[in-house]
Amino acid sequence: MAVYGQVILLGMMLFVIGGACVLIRRNLIMILIGVEIMLNAAGIVFIAASLRWGALDGQAFVIFIMAVAAAEVAVGLALIVYCQGRSGSINADTYNTLKG
């Protein structure tokens, strides 16, 4: 088992942790953080993979991911803040007027 295997494992664990955070938490901010963790887990896997294949494109991808994540967080936070301002809640499940 090469190093990359352990790093991938780390990435998976991080992904699971992020996923669990998304699943379990009701707070919008925390869910967002969970998503970020998942994205970063992917980044780690990319790094491990580029380690395995000896190619740089995986690592390059990580930079893209960072940019994307930043954009996403910016938009997301703006949305959440706006919503919180309107309805006074950042509990995900209070947003349930649309259903059925």
């Binding site: 990359y4 990435g11 998503v35 998942m38 992917a42 990319f46």
Partner: peptide, 12 residues
Amino acid sequence: AILLFGIAILYA
């Protein structure tokens, strides 16, 4: 995030 992680795994 899931898609991305999937891509990462595929790449890996």
